[in-house]
Design a protein around this nucleic acid. Sequence first.
DNA 1: AAGTGGTCTAGACCACCAT
DNA 2: TGGTGGTCTAGACCACTTA
Lengths: 266, 266
Amino acid sequence: MPKQINARPKPEMPHGDAPRYRVVKQALQKMIETGQYSAAHALPSEAVLAEKWRVSIGTLRRAVDELVHEHVLVRRQGKGTYVALHSPARFMFQFFHVEPRWSFGDDEAMHLQKPAEYPAIECLSFVSSRASDIQASALRIKRGEGVFVFENRLMLGQRAVMRDEICVSSGLLKGLNEKKFTRRSSTIYSLYQTDFGITVLRTLERARAVSADATSAKILGISAGAPVMQIHRLALTFGDRPVEYRISTLCTQAHDYVNASPLPAA
Amino acid sequence: MPKQINARPKPEMPHGDAPRYRVVKQALQKMIETGQYSAAHALPSEAVLAEKWRVSIGTLRRAVDELVHEHVLVRRQGKGTYVALHSPARFMFQFFHVEPRWSFGDDEAMHLQKPAEYPAIECLSFVSSRASDIQASALRIKRGEGVFVFENRLMLGQRAVMRDEICVSSGLLKGLNEKKFTRRSSTIYSLYQTDFGITVLRTLERARAVSADATSAKILGISAGAPVMQIHRLALTFGDRPVEYRISTLCTQAHDYVNASPLPAA
DNA sequence: AAGTGGTCTAGACCACCAT
DNA sequence: TGGTGGTCTAGACCACTTA
């Protein structure tokens, strides 16, 4: 008679056929989303979480693995597992795609990877307004609902490189104002997260080359009509719900838009 | 007296402190790289591979997991694990970043995701030549070594959208010629892989906006000086060794360069 | 020393695919 | 029916952090 080690209780499968680690993952994600686990403290230990959902520690770890992979959680050996916070480092790594120009031929630049420089951000305007058709459908709200629209200039090493026009729903980020915005201590996504409980998980970007209009040219200190990149970005949170719609105008006279296809090879 | 289940033999650790699943992963990768496992047949089963390296099946699976994640291997339930092949589908998914223009406001386009269209590729020229300084250092060869340089035009729906100038080392792709190139059945990366045993794993891209030069303008059917995107791409294989250096000129009048930051949310 | 995550094992059972 | 990958378990031991 064979041993009965894996006494997997077949029933109690919420989603029909979803494996248990995925069920646990969804449950965990829900609790993070609703703020039942915050970034302030560590989550309960893996042993406790495993017990809570009646799965083995291996299965629990697999659920957590996926959330770590998606930057929702971070593990710290010896300390615990935490809800991931938006830091300047994460911003540079995951969301900022601008680097000083160099060519693939340039060995210096390629192999001596200098730490990417964090941009200085200058707020040019901040207004409360009503959503246009485009803004509304990008943010999945109704035309005319309240939005905040603000405009930034990003500097890298004394040089203006990008103009950002950012639009967010004022329903979602209730109470955001210019003061909070300009006085923030870290990145914008960090502000969304810490002050409003909205966590940006990923972005969609669509870029094209255009001629700089008069406004952008003035802000970037280039001549009108010069070729610039225009980048439309939609930032998404859990469930791919849109959080922010941003149009960036990038001056590529001395900088590049960079994009590394999957995985820096472990 | 406690049970002795995990009799992990501490010694025989090649890389000092690398965990065993990573050692196994490197070993597997080496065998794939050197063609000892080819895409023609399935790899030995996980049980056999685990035995081969004297690890448990769980550990072996973890090694394979990572290679699957990096698109080096693909698993097929019930059949086996295979070396990943470059297919048109993979090309579109991982390496082709051009899509017809639409705005984030356009619900139709956003949520009814139409299958991306595969570009028609037309070879404009193919020459054997000697590496310039820039080409040489991008490809990590010596100036003056042999290279193949070819030029393509990509069409999407009867419309010229991109000009590619591609440079590869003739030492690496010995015997490549215009005939092989134009008669190929699938993507270029598929040709590198199937005919030359070179597998492109990832790419680095640096993009900027420029004014179209006369040549590009003619090829793309636009006026000289119109803003276009210029994309410098380096394609890498195992160990991040460069395979191909490519300069693309993209007409963004009706198309966008798209970039989704990590993970389509499981 | 106690608690956390990180690695590893040995094995059972399930789902899928071929023959 | 037999082989493959996919899920899951129960537990041991290691490495790291903090007190």
